[in-house]
Design a protein around this nucleic acid. Structure first.
Lengths: 235, 235
DNA sequence: CCACACAGTATTGTCTACAAACCTGTAGTC
DNA sequence: GACTACAGGTTTGTAGACAATACTGTGTGG
C-alpha cells in the first residue's frame, strides 16, 4: 500500500503502512488522538519523521489534522463513503479501459500471482496480509494501466475505502473477496472491455453492499451530534 | 485556490498560491528546478516552510520531487492530460448531482457574485485574477455541494488542469470562459440535474478542445526524447 | 586526444532545541 | 454556589545546525 512510495526515507512509508493497517484492522478507532511524541517513541524515530508520515496519511484521508490541536483518526461520514464508492466505480472502469487498450499480454501472470498470494493469506487467516493484498490488487491494476495519475487517485480511494470498510462493515468479511478478483482477471483475459468494466462495477457494488450505509448510527462522528442529536434538543 | 487550506500557517498556503499562479501563468516552465534555499530567500521564510509547501504542490501534481535531487515543475504527459479531463467530467457531474440534491436556494447568488468577479477580472485584463477565479468557480461548486471529499478531489484536478492548460493550450484564451460559467449557473438555477450535468460536460469538452493534445510536441518532457527522439536514433 | 577517477562544491535530508498555542485545574469574586 | 480569570503543564509549530548525497570541474593515465 505505502511500500511503493518513492523516497530515500524508507521508514516513513513503513510508519504509514503500520498506522494504515492498524486503522484498517480496527485496532485504532476513528477519533483516536495520535500524539506525535508518543508515536515517535513507539516507532523509535524522530518526531519530524512522524510529522511527515501524518501529513501523508492526512492527504489520504486517514487522519485529520487540526492546527495546534493534533492528529486524529479520521471519521468518514456516510455521504463521504457513498461518494468514494461512486467515484471508485468510474475510476476503476477507466483503469480497465486503459489496461485493455495496452498490449498487456504479460499482465495476466502478474495478476494471477497476486491472486494466489491473496488466497494464501486468507487460507492461513492472516488478516493483515489479506487486507493489504486486497487493496493491492486494485492498485496493481492501476499500475498495469500505465497511468501514474490513475494510480495516484486510486491509491487515495483505496486508502479511504479501507477506513470506510473498517467503520461501516456489517460483518467480519474482508474487504474484497478473492473470488471476485478471480472473476475480474478472467474478464480481463478475455479482452472484452465493456464486460470487464461491468465485472468491476459489480465487484464494487458487492463490497459497498456489505456496508451499513443506511443506518444513522454514525459512531460518534461529532460529539455534539452524538450526545444531543441532529435537532439540537436533548433527547 | 490554496487560500482555503486549513492551518495556522497562513504563509504556507500563500507560497503554494504564488508558485501555482506562476506555473499557471507560464512564468515557471515545466522542468524548471525549484531550489529550496532560493525559494526560502524569495519568500523570506525558513526552508522548512518551503519544504512543506513543495510537498503540498507535489501532492497536487504541480511539482515533481526527486529524492536527493530536488523539486521540479511537473511535466504532465498527454495521456495524463486526457485522464485528468476524463475524470473531471465524472467528478463534476457528481458535484452537480449533489449540489442540486441539496436545498441550495441561497447558492445562486454566491455563484453569480463569483461570476461577476470573473467578468471584472477579464474586463480589466487581470490575468492572475482571471486564472484564480476561473478555477475557483469550479471549487465553489464543489464547496456548495457539501462534500469535503469531492472538494478535495476537485482541488487536485483543477490544480493539475491549470498546469495542463499552461503547457498544452493552443492560444492565449483563459482557462474557462465566463460565458460558459454563466450558462452553467442558469442550468443549475433551473434545477434540472441531467441538463446541468450535460452543460458541465460540454463546458469541459470545450476547455479540452482548446488544448493541443494531438501533437507529439510534448515540450521537452524528457531530455533524451527531446534530443534523440522516441526511436533512440539521432534524427 | 579521449576516458576514467577523484576531489570540491552545492543542495537536499534529518535531527535537536526553542518558542507559541492550547487545554486543564485552581483560586478568586459576584 | 457558579462563573470568570489566571497559571501550570503539555503538545504542537518553527527555526537553525549538522550529516549525507549528488553534481561539476579538474587532473591523470592510456
Amino acid at each position: 500500500m505505502y511500500s511503493d512510495i518513492e523516497g530515500a526515507a524508507k521508514p516513513a512509508a513503513e510508519i504509514c503502512e503500520r498506522i494504515w493497517l492498524s486503522i484498517a484492522e480496527r485496532r485504532l478507532r476513528p477519533g483516536t488522538r495520535l500524539k506525535e511524541e508518543q508515536l515517535a517513541e513507539i516507532f523509535a524515530v524522530s518526531r519530524a519523521r512522524i510529522r511527515q508520515a501524518l501529513a501523508v496519511l492526512e492527504g489520504d484521508g486517514l487522519v485529520t489534522i487540526l492546527p495546534n490541536r493534533g492528529a486524529f483518526v479520521a471519521e468518514p461520514s456516510i455521504e463521504e463513503a457513498r461518494d468514494v464508492f461512486h467515484v471508485r466505480k468510474f475510476i476503476e472502469a477507466r483503469v480497465i479501459e486503459r489496461l485493455l487498450a495496452r498490449t498487456g499480454e504479460a499482465d495476466i501472470p502478474r495478476l494471477e500471482a497476486h491472486l494466489e498470494e491473496e488466497r494464501a493469506a486468507n487460507a492461513r487467516g492472516d488478516t493483515s496480509a489479506a487486507i493489504r493484498l486486497s487493496g493491492g490488487f486494485h492498485l496493481l491494476l492501476a499500475e498495469l494501466s500505465g497511468s501514474d495519475f490513475l494510480l495516484r487517485v486510486l491509491h487515495d480511494l483505496v486508502s479511504r475505502s479501507s477506513l470506510i470498510t473498517a467503520v461501516y462493515r456489517n460483518r467480519d468479511g474482508h474487504n474484497c473477496g478473492p473470488d471476485d478478483h478471480g472473476a475480474l482477471i478472467r474478464s480481463i483475459a478475455e479482452k472484452d472491455s465493456p464486460r470487464a468494466q461491468a465485472t468491476m462495477r459489480e465487484h464494487l457494488d458487492h463490497v459497498e453492499a456489505e456496508l451499513d450505509l443506511d443506518t444513522d448510527l454514525v459512531p460518534a462522528a461529532d460529539l455534539r451530534q452524538a450526545l444531543i442529536g441532529p435537532t439540537g434538543m436533548i433527547q
